[in-house]
Structures are given as C-alpha cells and as structure tokens.
Write a protein that binds this DNA or RNA. Sequence first.
DNA 1: GTGAAACCTCAAGATTTCATCAAGAGAGTT
DNA 2: AACTCTCTTGATGAAATCTTGAGGTTTCAC
Lengths: 224, 224
Amino acid sequence: MARIHLIEDDAEIRRLVAGAMARAGHEVDSSASAMDGLQRVISDRPDVVVLDLGLPDLDGAELLRMLRSVSDVPVIVATARDDDESTVKLLDAGADDYVVKPYSAENLEARVRAVLRRASDGKPATLQVGGLSIDIAAREAHLEGELLDLAPKEFELLQLLMERAGEVVSKREMLAEVWREPYGGSERTVDVHLSWLRKKLGETAAEPRFLQTVHGVGVKLVAP
Amino acid sequence: MARIHLIEDDAEIRRLVAGAMARAGHEVDSSASAMDGLQRVISDRPDVVVLDLGLPDLDGAELLRMLRSVSDVPVIVATARDDDESTVKLLDAGADDYVVKPYSAENLEARVRAVLRRASDGKPATLQVGGLSIDIAAREAHLEGELLDLAPKEFELLQLLMERAGEVVSKREMLAEVWREPYGGSERTVDVHLSWLRKKLGETAAEPRFLQTVHGVGVKLVAP
DNA sequence: GTGAAACCTCAAGATTTCATCAAGAGAGTT
DNA sequence: AACTCTCTTGATGAAATCTTGAGGTTTCAC
C-alpha cells in the first residue's frame, strides 16, 4: 500500500508499529535517531514519515524543519505532550498531522490513510503503451517523445483505446464513449477518425503499429 | 486571509469563534444547523469549514459525508469525544483535521493555517511559470519583472490557470471558478476576457506564449 | 474462387468553435 | 454630470474539426 518511514528511538515501539502497519498492508522502515532518519528519508523517499518527538539527538521540531527543507513528504508527528502549545508549533512547522502517545495502531493507520489521500490528489494521470503516452490533464499525446497534434475526437479515441489497451473495443462502444449517445451518426465516422489517428501515429491499417483491427469486432491497441 | 464557515448550534461559541478568527484576520460566517450549513457551504464556497459535532438536526459524520459529496473544502471537526474510535471514523469520513472541545482560539487558528497550507500545497502564495509570477495575497502579477495591470476577472483567470499550469482548463470550469455558479453567462464572455488577458501578456491567440488553446476543450497555461 | 459484408481512405462540404472588435450597461470616482 | 474602469453581449470572419458520400480494398464464409 504505502511505504512508511518511522523515526523513533524506542525499539519496542518500532517493533509494534512495524507489525501493525505491515498487517495493514504497508511497508515500514525505521530509524532510531534524527540524523539517521533524515538521511533515510532523503535516500529512500518514503510515502509517509511518522516522526516521534523526544528523540535523543535532536529536537523534533528542528528535525521537522530540516525534513521540510529537503522533501514535501507528509509527516505525522507522534507526541506525548497533549497541550495546545506544542501541537500548534508542530503544525506550523509543517507537520501534516499528529497522534498523541500512546496511540493505537488503528488511529495511526487512519492518519496514514488520510495523509495519503490528501497527497495523492492532483497526481497527473498518464497512460503508457509502448512508445505511446498520453497525459489526460494536459491533453497531450506523445509518440517516441514527439508531441502529437490530435483533434478532440482523435484524442478521446486514443484515450479510450489506451485505457483498455490489449482489449478489443467495438465501434459501438467508441460511439458511446467518444460521441456520447444518443447519436445518429454512422460507424463510418468512427472509421474516418481511426484512419486519421492512424496517420498521426505513423501507421496505416495495412501496416499497423498500435491499432489492430479485429475484423467484425472492433479495434485493439497493443504495443508494437 | 481566509473565509471560514462555522457550523455550530451554540450561539455563544459562534460569537467567540467569530471574534477570535476575525482578530486573526479571517472572515467568519456561520450556520446554526446542519442543513443550513450544507446549503451555505455550497453557495458561499468558503475556504475552510469548521464543523461542530452534536448538531440538533443531523449526525456530524453524516453531514461530513454530504459535504464531501458536494465539495472538497477542507473540514475541521470540533468534537467533545476524545477517544480514538470517533476520530478515526471522522478522518476516514473525510475530515481534514479535528479539535477537541473545549478548544483554544490559538489551536483552532493553527489548524486553519495548517489545512489552508495543505489545501494550497503546490499552489503557494506566489506562483511562477516561466517569466510570469503572481502574488495571490498582494493580487499582483508580474511578467519579466514588469507589473501587469489586470482587471479582477483577468487576475482570477490567470490565477486559476497558473494554479493548474500545464493542465487544460475548460471554459465551464473557468465560469464555475471565476464567475461562480450559478451563472447564466455565456462562454463567449470567457473568450473575451482571455483575449484581454492575452493582450496584456503580450501575446495573441495566433502567437501564443503562455496561453495555449486546446480546441474543443479549453485553455492551458504553459511556460514558453 | 466468389460474393457479401466489413473496412479503409480521400476529398469536399457542413458544422462547430474561436478570436477579436465594437457598442453599451453599470458601478464607482472625480 | 462627465469620466474611467470593468464587464457583458452581439457580430463577424477565420480556423479547426466533423460528417458524409463514394470508390477501392480486405476479410470471411461457403
């Protein structure tokens, strides 16, 4: 599910957390000191960091600032102090969330899920098949690094075929997905657009590279 | 600073929070019931929602789910229950953070800052793309160091496009974000404002520098 | 093989979408 | 009241895209 890095000096807690998170499907790695943790975060690039305050070698808030200067990985702070004072400082220092010790595994797991959900927002959706790739948000298609100039219907057709790469997609489905029903147009129209798409992909129906027609059924996109 | 909507049935707490947040530079509006709050969130589009549990007309978690289904506004839940159980449920239901009642104004303020920072992650107070930069707080846009004289709608359009640099933004989205729904206006209006913005950016649709129109879809802002 | 059905491609006309200008309304200011 | 700034709307021409018809090619079943 996610790779978690735990910075915590108490070996017993490390063991407990690692066990609980592993059971929840996460992969846990840990450091026993602040400086060690900082290095590991830089080198391992975990998805989430769980940072225990009260480390022997460095103040937690200080480490948090250092982490923030090198990475924007979500950080969940575990603290024994329950007063407003310190939590305010931590959130301002860049913590994404915190749990109060002693914390339950369920609670930590919920926090991890929450920060991951937040972090995964806005990731670019890109599809790849062979030397073909499309970025849906940017509405760009690249072939061997070259930007393709596709018309709207062509792009949507390609997107549909890439989303279902390897599967045969019927023209009826293309009409439904790209043209949106109810549509009075004929399937000839799809043929024409497919032809244009092929031309831009540097192929022809007789010499297919990506778009294989399956006679009587439809078309499937495959890696060359 | 930020527009906060407080959903809370206790008038005294509403008064206290509104006062404290106003002192911190935020603008606070409030509702006394769940259904009222839901409607106001939809119509007013606040930057943060502070939701009190234990409302008379609806369970807080239920309202949270309803909120989430219509908006991704950050929600801070205020709860009297301090047990792991309920906080886990709330975070899973989509809460961004929570405070335990009675909470201090400083604490709530820190949470608000934290969720705002998170919500604006990747879109800090100043945005840059190529030689273009805008300072959202100061409402200033600079091109190659030169201050641009933009009308309100132009600035907001530019801000939206810069926040989503590289992504295609549709005119419908621009209407929703910049003009605020429900809006009867036509998409031609957007075209005109885009044209003005282009002129001030020293470009034209035929010779784009930053604003690329993606025919049939929308416009995206890219570095030249 | 042979014929029917399905498919491919081209070219031209039809349609949709865009960019820009210009006129006018409304709000706020001088 | 005249002025400025901003926004909305309609018009116009241009550009990009889509659809359709027609002719040729391939595939499949018999």
